[in-house]
Design a protein around this nucleic acid. Structure first.
Lengths: 234, 234
DNA sequence: ACCTGAACACCGTTCAAGT
DNA sequence: ACCTGAACACCGTTCAAGT
């Protein structure tokens, strides 16, 4: 991974690649320009010749990760295309550890470089028979849904000793009175480490495949139904 | 807002309140323990008597914001309860500028203090006739959907001069060829600043009410349908 | 054009010391 | 118990200078 001194010149691509490595190793919180420079055997300030500041570097990293997301097969049904889009997005985040925090918040600002995503979503909605007057809110619904689950599944969990966090959650679970919250107590055992708010591992260590599939189904079904409704009452 | 020196003692509550003020003013990126100490006329290290580090402070801030989210009226239909939950969540984020980045990623780790949210969601799902064997994935679907749209709507946009960003987006929009992306070009005008990826203002400056309502409808409809399906094929 | 090198104004956090 | 104060090991970023 390490650039041989005085052989390869720097480039945006090399910097981004090394930045992704560092984020994967240590997380986005502790990621620093100085570290990426160190790894590339150069000076922190050299990075500034390629990126005007840390934020734009992070933005281009997000773009890089997003580059594989939009499906380019056009022989798909609209709902298969959307399902594949959602899965591609999840895979992209999954294959770049600790990247989730960045994407959910910054995609909206930086993925514009690729019109294929926007055009693909709109085309899918039109094929689904969405009335043109409702394309914009529906488009927003799709983008938000694409990011929502994945941002949480792979999002930041406290990285202090995982065992400590597990203990804290289990202890909290014990304290819940079954007379006060009978429904919660009934499902608590099977929710431990499999449900949001009750997990001590995130999606990288303990994937939520079944939940994600359910989520996608709910979304696609809701989209169909809602478009049906919209066509009934113009 | 400023604590009078040597009159009020410090407390968790006071620190959290001032931290929320600072985040609202300057954003979560530049929020620092040293700044909140300065505002409270005390030393940075005094904060560490109340919070073991910056991350736990941020966690408790997130908890504070979440404290108003779970509806406590129990005379609601399950879908009205869920709709209200979604709206409460959006309102909470909306009323605490720049807090969105924090919540989406950290709620999952810190909201556990309040079993009412978990119990409420499970109870709503049971009332909706969700089969017990599918409660966990459905619960995850609900939580992810609650956070998804709002995290993006109020999420971080580049804070460099907004005008500059607008210009950049408009320029990019001009370049899109209508022969290559006819559907996108058709809707582009109405999408500018109203759609994810094509906005230069976030939800605080330009709310996405219509899209959010559509999103909630899609989700609730999808939930109904999916539960129907699950009950057909056990 | 591309990188070096020093410098500035910040950080979070630890630790010892005060009251 | 609660706060002061100094110190440490970091940051991002600017600017002038080198090649």
């Amino acid at each position: 991974m390490k650039r041989k001194a005085n052989t390869t010149p720097l480039s945006k691509e090399i910097i981004i690649e090394e930045a992704l490595n560092l984020i994967a190793e240590k997380g986005v919180d502790t990621f620093s320009i100085r570290d990426v420079a160190k790894r590339l055997d150069t000076y922190p300030t050299a990075i500034y010749w390629y990126f005007k500041n840390k934020n734009t570097l992070l933005g281009e990293i997000a773009n890089k990760v997003m580059s594989s997301v939009t499906p380019n097969c056009s022989n798909l049904d609209w709902h298969d295309w959307l399902t594949l889009l959602f899965q591609n997005y999840r895979d992209a985040v999954k294959h770049h550890p600790h990247i989730a925090d960045l994407i959910g918040g910054r995609l909206l600002a930086n993925a514009y470089q690729d019109p294929r995503l926007l055009d693909g979503v709109i085309t899918a909605l039109l094929e689904a028979n969405c009335p043109p007057s409702h394309i914009v809110p529906m488009y927003n619904t799709v983008i938000a849904s694409m990011c929502g689950f994945v941002t949480m599944e792979f999002g930041h969990l406290p990285k202090e000793n995982a065992g400590e966090w597990e203990a804290k959650l289990r202890e909290g679970a014990e304290k819940i009175e079954s007379c006060e919250y009978p429904n919660l107590v009934r499902f608590l055992p099977q929710m431990m480490n499999t449900s949001f708010i009750l997990r001590w591992q995130n999606g990288y260590d303990s994937p939520m495949d079944e939940s994600f599939n359910r989520y996608v189904d709910v979304f696609i079904e809701g989209l169909k139904r809602q478009i049906n409704e919209l066509n009934k009452t113009p």
